[in-house]
């Protein structure tokens, strides 16, 4: 089981599904960012799994996943800064309260 690509891909898809549900359903903006981190990690797992089961691509997949981690860290920094900036104005982290453009 641990030596088959399918098992790792299914694991990755399940993690992605959980993250996707969290992103779509949560009200708290920071919880949504955490769900995005889960989805990015699921994609990274798929990349590493593809690399691990393809000869000569193991190092290339790790390099690619490393770049994904770095870009995800940049995304988390800016995303959390935006959430804090909005929180400073609106005094709430709940996204369904950000309705001033609707009113």
């Amino acid at each position: 089981m641990s030596q088959s690509l399918e098992a790792y891909l299914v694991l990755s898809v399940l993690l992605f599904g959980i993250g996707m549900f969290g992103f779509l359903a949560k009200r708290n903006a920071i919880a949504m960012l955490m769900s995005i981190e889960l989805m990015l990690n699921a994609v990274n797992l798929a990349i590493i799994a593809f690399g691990a089961f393809t000869p000569e691509f193991a190092a290339r997949a790790s390099t690619f996943a490393l770049f994904v981690i770095a870009v995800a860290a940049a995304e988390a920094t800016v995303g959390l800064a935006i959430v804090i900036a909005i929180y400073r104005n609106r005094r709430t982290p709940l996204v369904d309260e950000y309705a001033s453009m609707k009113e």
């Binding site: 089961f53 393809t54 691509f57 193991a58 790790s62």
Partner: peptide, 15 residues
């Protein structure tokens, strides 16, 4: 999938 049966180890030196 055109996958190998064994896990390929990614050496840190190669990375």
């Amino acid at each position: 999938w055109n996958a190998t049966a064994e896990v390929q180890v990614a050496e840190p030196r190669d990375i």
